[in-house]
């Protein structure tokens, strides 16, 4: 991998798009401050990545042959430390959910982009890469799986299930309670109370509780409880909502209902590992938290953020 602990003077950016005018335009924005390379297709981008450690990869989604999510997934395998951004004019839900679960993207940016906003996002991505290189993050998936039984159930970090539907809550608790302590909540305040009083490592939540998207809650919790890992379940996925969950919630996974039980177990195990990794390095957890985009003021929902802060500090 030949990873260096620090960045070169000019961070390396790789842009992928099948429309070359987009590439020209992007290059014109960044060429003064960054070492920019461009690729006209996914395959070309992968080729470049193999020989050139890009710090940030920005890809279009809708491309012939290889989609953006495919590119990001391959990139994550070749260069795990490269921060990945999706820049797209329109994405279907599958692509968006895939970009979270498979691409583990840093941000989702819509076309047409705002020049300054894109600059800020890229700068944040470069910073995230630098930190990742310094922290030398370990992958979530270990080479040899650890036997789960070596640690007792009670010692495992707890899982909080936030869901307004009682039957679904119980079904989830039933599936998960064999491996780790499970706590349940049916409203935001319930959830805050559980997080305050129990040791919680991950939150499995319905995308909306009582019609209110959970984005605000997750965004607020990031700074207050660094190291929490979020899995979002959704029945009626809303593209914009999931994009928000990526940008402002930095959620770990999004699972679409109906959910396969083995997929759920696997995802929860991965999330637990991630939490443990972050729990061992609180500084790194805090760093990652800082990378979460702040909610724009107009979207901060009726002082819920303040409520969260107040509640957790009480």
């Amino acid at each position: 991998m030949n990873a260096q602990p620090s960045l070169p003077d000019r961070p390396r950016l790789l842009f992928v798009d099948d429309e070359s005018r987009i590439l020209v335009s992007l290059k014109s924005i960044f060429r003064n401050d960054y070492d920019v390379r461009i690729a006209n297709s996914g395959a070309e981008a992968i080729d470049i990545l193999r020989g050139w450690p890009a710090d940030v990869l920005v890809s279009d989604q809708r491309m012939p042959e290889m989609t953006g999510v495919d590119v990001l997934r391959s990139a994550a395998e070749i260069r795990p430390t490269t921060t990945r951004i999706l820049l797209t004019g329109y994405s279907d839900l599958e692509a968006i959910i895939g970009s979270v679960n498979d691409g583990e993207i840093f941000r989702f940016v819509s076309k047409p982009w705002r020049r300054n906003e894109l600059r800020d996002t890229v700068a944040a991505a470069v910073k995230a890469t630098a930190r990742a290189l310094t922290a030398n993050d370990e992958p979530d998936t270990p080479a040899v799986p650890e036997p789960v039984s070596s640690v007792s159930v009670a010692d495992q970090p707890g899982v909080l299930i936030l869901d307004a539907d009682a039957a679904e809550r119980e079904a989830l608790r039933h599936v998960l309670s064999a491996d780790r302590p499970v706590h349940v909540a049916s409203s935001f305040l319930d959830a805050l109370e559980q997080i305050r009083t129990h040791q919680i490592g991950m939150v499995i939540t319905e995308s909306s509780i009582g019609g209110e998207p959970v984005t605000t809650l997750i965004n607020g919790l990031h700074s207050l409880r660094p190291g929490l890992v979020y899995i979002v379940l959704t029945g009626q996925p809303d593209a914009q909502h999931i994009i928000d969950l990526i940008n402002f919630g930095r959620v770990y996974r999004v699972l679409r209902k109906p959910i396969n039980v083995s997929v759920l177990r696997g995802t929860v195990n991965l999330a637990a590992r991630r939490h443990q990794s972050l729990a061992r390095r609180p500084e790194r957890a805090r760093e990652l938290t800082e990378e979460v985009a702040p909610m724009p003021p107009e979207r901060q929902n009726r002082g819920l953020f303040a409520k969260i802060r107040e509640f957790l500090h009480a």
């Binding site: 429309e19 987009i22 992007l26 004019g89 076309k111 047409p112 982009w113 020049r115």
Partner: peptide
Amino acid sequence: AHEINTPLGYALSN
């Protein structure tokens, strides 16, 4: 949306 946003993206940016 996709067809418009792509040219719009570079046009606006340019």
